[in-house]
Simulated scan of single mutants.
Amino acid sequence: MDEAHPIIVFDAECVLCSLNARFVLRHDRHGHFRLASMQGAVGAALYRRFGIDPADPETLIVVTGDEALRDSTAILAIWSGLGWPWRALTILRLAPRALRDPLYRLVARNRYRLFGKRRTCWVPRPDQASRVLP
């Protein structure tokens, strides 16, 4: 894994997750992150590597080297990596993980019901394709 370019593994069938992926691609002006869907070979392999079932994921992960961040910590790492003004949202680190993570998991468990599910996986625009792993 390239530590200079953390990989965000997300559910490309989830409307909320796909919106988040597009948000990252739009606001990551320095090309810091790479993305991989859990439906693709790279994303599924990374989920399995860190003990997450790609068929029933409960979280997105941010992989840097041999480490995977999960739940609210992963979201905070994304905001931090995007730079200003998004980095300001990392003030939420002041809230204990014992409060942040259950809220994250509640939304993650109900993401299809709350935001919808795509019939097909989200596909990046051609100018973004180099940042999305197969």
Score class of each variant (00 low, 15 high):
F33V: 01
F33T: 00
F33S: 01
R34Q: 04
R34N: 00
R34L: 12
L35Q: 11
A36F: 05
A36Q: 01
A36S: 09
S37I: 01
S37G: 15
M38S: 04
M38L: 15
M38G: 14
M38A: 13
Q39T: 07
G40L: 06
G40R: 11
G40E: 11
A41R: 13
A41L: 13
V42P: 10
V42H: 07
V42I: 12
V42M: 06
G43K: 12
G43Y: 11
A44R: 05
A44Y: 03
A44E: 02
A44I: 01
A44L: 03
A44F: 02
A45M: 12
A45T: 08
L46Y: 01
L46V: 01
L46W: 03
L46H: 03
L46S: 01
Y47W: 15
Y47D: 09
R48H: 04
R48P: 06
R48L: 11
R48D: 10
R49Y: 11
R49N: 08
R49D: 13
R49I: 03
R49V: 02
R49E: 13
R49M: 13
F50W: 15
F50E: 08
F50G: 09
G51Y: 14
G51V: 07
I52H: 05
I52V: 14
I52T: 06
D53T: 04
D53P: 07
D53Q: 11
D53L: 12
P54Y: 06
P54H: 09
P54L: 12
P54W: 09
A55G: 12
A55H: 09
A55F: 03
A55Q: 06
A55D: 08
D56K: 09
D56L: 04
P57R: 11
P57Y: 08
E58P: 00
E58G: 06
E58Y: 08
E58S: 06
T59Y: 09
T59R: 03
T59K: 02
L60D: 07
I61F: 02
I61L: 07
I61R: 01
I61N: 00
I61A: 00
V62W: 04
V62E: 05
V63A: 11
V63P: 06
V63E: 08
V63L: 10
T64Q: 12
T64C: 08
G65A: 15
D66C: 06
D66E: 15
D66F: 06
E67T: 14
A68P: 00
A68R: 02
L69H: 04
L69Y: 02
L69T: 00
L69V: 01
R70E: 14
D71Y: 13
D71Q: 10
D71W: 13
S72G: 05
S72Q: 07
S72T: 01
S72D: 06
T73E: 14
T73M: 12
T73F: 10
A74S: 08
A74I: 00
L76V: 05
L76P: 02
A77M: 08
A77Y: 07
A77R: 13
A77N: 04
I78T: 03
I78L: 14
I78V: 13
I78F: 10
I78W: 09
